[in-house]
Design a protein around this nucleic acid. Structure first.
Lengths: 124, 124
DNA sequence: ATCGGTGCAAAGGTTTTGCAGGCGG
DNA sequence: CCGCCTGCAAAACCTTTGCACCGAT
């Protein structure tokens, strides 16, 4: 755990905004002005592999990262692109059960991405 | 509906392999040798906007396209990367119901991507 | 002294776009 | 004749990688 990795993890955990590598780069640079974008990417990859953070890969856009590794889903606003968390209550976690799909694949996981309109865009 | 668009749509509908733009480019070029990759992308975008085809955007990889627009999901093999269809039977469609998520977003849709091991990779 | 991690810069791969020309209406 | 669509090429964009250097063990 280098200084760089430590700061990246700390800054990411401060946020609930699911930043891109580039957005995080700008934030981390305030603490480590000489850090490079390559280092950001390398460490985000490491942290993700170590299970300390989560990659959020909505199709079409660029990769985003989430410091919250508790079980939850994401919803993306189709108007402004903002991504928010959706907490998994007992009712909704029960909804996706890998056992009940008809396929010859041996299922190991899934990604559920919700789409909708955020409160701000609903008013506009 | 130009000749180019027509051929692209026809070739895509022939396949169940969820090709990338580039893979489709190679196929379409056998019929229209002078077509450009830019035209492929432009038309796939148009066709998708018109609801005639479907974009399949698994996170992390490159964009894929599906000529089958009936309601179904996709499963990606985590070993070989192959993408297959999962037919939605009455049992599994009932599993995802937008009404039961706890969020302030007004939900309009979702994307469910399954991950697993395909029959071929299970043996290997 | 060694080794992993870093900064920097360049490369890489995919997708988008500007532009002039062509085709159909 | 007009306007849309094309082919071509360049640009744009995000991410990865090679390399020399540094810092800590």
């Amino acid at each position: 755990m280098t200084r760089q990795r430590e700061v990246i993890l700390r800054e990411l955990r401060k946020l609930t905004s699911h930043p891109t590598a580039d957005e995080l780069y700008l934030l981390v640079r305030e603490h480590l002005p000489r850090i490079s974008l390559g280092t950001i990417y390398r460490n985000l990859e490491e942290l993700s592999a170590a299970g300390l953070i989560q990659k959020v890969e909505f199709g079409g856009g660029q990769r985003r990262f989430d410091g919250d590794i508790t079980d939850h889903w994401h919803v993306k606003c189709t108007d402004c692109g903002r991504i928010a968390d959706v907490s998994p209550d007992p009712e909704s976690t029960a909804q996706v059960s890998l056992g009940s799909f008809r396929t010859e694949f041996e299922l190991t996981g899934y990604r559920l991405e919700l789409m909708g309109t955020c409160p701000a865009c609903q008013q506009a």
